[in-house]
Design a protein around this nucleic acid. Structure first.
Lengths: 342, 342
DNA sequence: CTGAAAGCGCTTACAG
DNA sequence: CTGAAAGCGCTTACAG
C-alpha cells in the first residue's frame, strides 16, 4: 500500500541508495549491469521517486512556471506541448499560471510560496515593458519570454510582420478584391497582444507596395472567434463582388469565413480564397491555406533556454526568432482557368 | 541572500523550532507572548516556510489539483478564486491542469509525479460517467466534481434547469416575441458540457407551459462568443418584428446581442429585452439582466468538501446544489408605457 | 564505479 | 505551553 522508497529499492537491488539515485538521474558512472539490477528492482517494486524529497535535498524546485493568458487557443496548448517535451526529459515539472489580470500577475510574482516553488519562468504573450516600469520582472529568477521581446530577458518569438508580408505575397497573385480580417485590439495596454496587428500590418504594407492597397472598407476587425469570421464575410459581400481574397490574422477567423462561404454558396478557391495564420492542426482537414508557426519548436526552445539559465548560463539576453511558413491548400489553390500571376 | 530557515527564526526568537512550527501552523497551544516573539522574528528575517520541506516532513503534498477545460470564461476564473480562498486559509496550494483532450486527462491521472504531488482533485465541467466506464476516477485520491454530478463523488452544481425556468418566468411577463439563444453542443461526448442545454431546456419548457412556446425559427445555436450573439440578433430581425425578448444561455452571448442592438438602432428595454445567464461582474456596467450563479461560493464549497475528504471524512458522496438568482437591470426593465404582466 | 554518511528544512510525537 | 530529537526520502560530496 505504502509507496516504496529509495531505500527499499536499494535493499532489493543489493546496492546503496546513492547508486539508486544515480540510476534515477541518469548519472553516467554506473555500471550497465548495476543499472539493470536497480532498474528491475524499481520495476518490481513500482518505485516512483518522491519529488518533494528530491526538491529539498537538491535545494531547488525542479519546477518551471509558465505564465500565460487564460485564453482558448491551440497556440498555448501546442506551446506547452513543446515546453513539456524538454522539461520532462530533464525531470523538470511545469506549473501553470493562467492570468486574467495584471493584479493577479503581481500576486503570482510576489507570492512567497511561488517564489520557493519554481526555478524559473516562461512568460507568454505579455510585454514586460508594459507591465513593469523598468521592463524587468521583480524576481531574481531566470525568465524567458515567448511571443514578446525584451532587451533584458531571453525571448522567443515569431516574425509576424514577415508572416503578414508572405501572406500578401501569396494572395496578391490572384485577381479579385483583397480583404484583411484582423483582431480587435484590447483596451488594456498591459495585456495588449501585438502579434495579430503585426501580421496585418505586414500584410497591408506589402499589399500597398504591390500596388493593391487595402482600403478601410475592405478590412474588418473582430474579437477572436469563429463567428467573427462569419460576420466579416457577411460584411465583405455587402461592399464588393467575388472573387474575394481574404487574409485572416488567425486560422480561427479563417474558419468562420469558410463556414459562412458555404452558407452563402460561395465556391472556395474560385469565388473566394482564404488564407489563415497559425497552421493549426485542424486546418489541413479544412483545406485551409495558412502561414504555419513552429509553435512546438518555439516552446521547446524557450524551455531549453530557461534550463540553460537555471543551469548557470549568464550570457546576455538572447533572441530566438522564428519564421512562419506558407502552406498552400485548397482554400487558395490557383484556379487554372482564372488569372494567376506566378 | 540565502533564505532564512526555521532554525534561524527559532534562534532569533530564542525558542525551539517546534514552537516556530506551531506558530506557522496556527497551533492553539502557544502562549500569545511567545507567538508574538516568533512572529516578529519571522518578520525581521523575512522568513517564508519552505513548502517542500513541509511536504516531505508532513507526508503529504498540501496541494490540490484542479482539472478544468482550457476555455476562456470568467466562470473558471471565479471558480478558482473561490477555491483558492479556502485553500490558502488552510495553507494548501493549487495545481492547475487545463485539459484539451481526454488523452491528456489520462496522462495527468496516471502520471506518477502527479500522483505524488497532490492530495486530492477538483474536476470541473467533466462528466466522469462519460469519461470512464465505471464513472470512477482511476485514482485513490478524493475527488470533488463541479458542474457535474456523480453518485460516487462529492458534487457541487447549479440547478441550471431551474435557472432557465426562472428566466422564462421573467421574460414571459413582457409582450412581444420570445427568442432563445443557445450554445451549440460539442460533438465529442466526453467533453460535452450540458449546463447550457439544461438552461435552455428549462427555459423552453417553462415558456411552453406559459403558453408561449418558442418555435425553432426563434432559436439560434452558436459557439461561445460575443459575435455569436450578434449573428443571432441579425437572424432574429429577419424572422420577426420588435419587441424582441431574448434569453441568452450565457452572458457573453447576451453581450453580443446588446452590441448588435446598438448597431441596428434597437432601443434596449423597449424594442428589445435581453436576459443573460451567469451574472458576470461586467454585466452590471452593461445594464444586463442576468441569472447570477454564486460561482465563488461554489468554488469555496468544492474546496471545503475536498479538504474534509483529505482530512479523513469518509461518508457517502454528497451533493451540493445551488440556485441562480435573477438580477434585474436595464436590459429587461419593464417599460411603464407597454403591457407588463405582473 | 559504488557505499556510507551528512544534510536539506520542515512536522510530529514524546517528554517535561 | 515548550524543547530536543527522530524522521520524512531524497542528493551530493567524500572516500575507497
Amino acid at each position: 500500500m505504502k509507496k516504496p522508497t529509495i531505500q527499499e529499492v536499494a535493499n532489493h537491488a543489493g546496492v546503496g541508495i546513492g547508486t539508486v539515485s544515480r540510476v534515477i538521474n541518469n548519472h553516467p558512472s554506473v555500471r550497465p549491469m548495476t543499472r539493470a539490477r536497480v532498474q528491475s528492482a524499481m520495476d518490481v517494486l513500482g518505485y516512483v521517486p518522491n519529488p518533494h524529497a528530491r526538491r529539498i535535498a537538491g535545494g531547488r524546485s525542479y519546477t518551471v512556471s509558465v505564465i500565460l493568458p487564460f485564453f482558448t487557443t491551440e497556440f498555448y496548448t501546442r506551446l506547452l506541448e513543446g515546453v513539456e517535451s524538454v522539461l520532462s526529459e530533464q525531470r523538470y515539472d511545469l506549473a501553470l499560471f493562467p492570468l486574467l489580470s495584471k493584479r493577479r500577475l503581481e500576486r503570482y510574482l510576489t507570492s512567497h510560496t511561488l517564489a520557493y516553488q519554481t526555478d524559473g519562468l516562461i512568460i507568454s504573450s505579455y510585454n514586460l515593458t508594459e507591465l513593469f516600469k523598468d521592463g524587468r520582472l521583480p524576481s531574481e529568477r531566470p525568465v524567458v519570454l515567448v511571443d514578446a521581446k525584451s532587451p533584458l530577458h531571453d525571448s522567443v518569438y515569431l516574425d509576424n510582420r514577415l508572416g503578414g508580408r508572405l501572406a500578401a505575397e501569396h494572395l496578391l497573385r490572384f485577381s479579385g478584391t483583397i480583404f484583411c480580417l484582423q483582431i480587435k485590439e484590447e483596451l488594456d495596454a498591459s495585456f495588449k497582444n501585438t502579434v495579430f496587428s503585426e501580421r496585418t500590418q505586414g500584410f497591408l504594407e506589402a499589399a500597398r507596395e504591390g500596388g493593391r492597397a487595402v482600403p478601410r472598407e475592405h478590412r474588418f476587425s473582430t474579437r477572436f472567434s469563429t463567428e467573427g469570421g462569419r460576420l466579416a464575410l457577411q460584411r465583405f459581400t455587402q461592399v464588393a463582388k467575388p472573387p474575394f481574397n481574404i487574409f485572416a490574422a488567425t486560422d480561427m477567423l479563417a474558419l468562420g469565413v469558410l463556414e459562412e462561404a458555404e452558407q452563402l454558396g460561395l465556391r472556395v478557391g474560385q469565388d473566394i480564397r482564404v488564407l489563415g495564420f497559425d497552421g493549426q492542426p485542424w486546418a489541413a482537414a479544412k483545406g485551409l491555406s495558412t502561414l504555419a508557426q513552429p509553435i512546438e519548436t518555439m516552446g521547446a526552445r524557450a524551455a531549453t533556454m530557461l534550463l540553460e539559465r537555471i543551469g548557470g548560463f549568464s550570457g546576455r539576453a538572447r533572441l530566438a526568432r522564428f519564421e512562419a511558413e506558407l502552406i498552400e491548400r485548397a482554400s487558395t489553390r490557383p484556379d487554372p482557368k482564372s488569372a494567376y500571376l506566378p
